[in-house]
Amino acid sequence: MNSPLSPWAAKALGWFLLQFVRLLTGAQARWYGCPPLAEQRIYFANHQSHADLVMIWAALPQELRAITRPVAARDYWMKTPLRQWITTAVFNAVYVDRERKEGGDPLQPLEEALERGDSIILFPEGTRGDGDEPQAFKSGLYTLATRFPDVVLVPAWIDNIQRVMPKGEVVPVPILCSVTFGAPVRLAPDEERRAFLDRARAAVIALRDV
């Protein structure tokens, strides 16, 4: 991983992955509620497939891709050296533990990234959903919203990706996909945790049919 070749290899792999995703899915971005701006943002989206991370990464324009870091589940993406290398060198991912460890704060890596000024891509369901509707959001989004009130929260709906690569399959099939970005959601001054999370989830679901 620390060989002198790796930055070039990572660039080449990143380019290859981008073309591959475009070939399979079209990687279309639809900016409905906000323009693609280089401000600090937390994109939060529905989660149906491991390919979600690659999809939303590919849909962002080049300039934003460089300053936006996807959040990846440590147990899945650190499992093999190849996965780890891809998420680190190509996606510049932030790893989180999905299972809470004793005494540790699972949000700490995200906070560090936000403090450095990076934007992040978050899947607040925490795990891949199986049904049509996203599951209830976990509280991480709310916590980050209270600690970083200046970061813009952008909801996103990733469409069709579960058809490209359903759970348990290894070969992806070509189907057109799109990522729809909605109007930013703001945390109201005295909003409850659950109410905010439900409102954020509704904002994501609303993008399905625009």
């Binding site: 399979l24 079209g26 069709n160 058809r163 359903p166 399959e169 070969v171 099939v173 070509p174 189907i175 057109l176």
Partner: peptide
């Protein structure tokens, strides 16, 4: 074919046929 399949109602069981 990619465009055609996108608008067809395939389910998870069709994945192998699509491949």
């Amino acid at each position: 074919l990619r465009e055609f399949i996108t608008l067809s109602p395939t389910r998870r069981g069709d994945h192998r046929s699509l491949v």
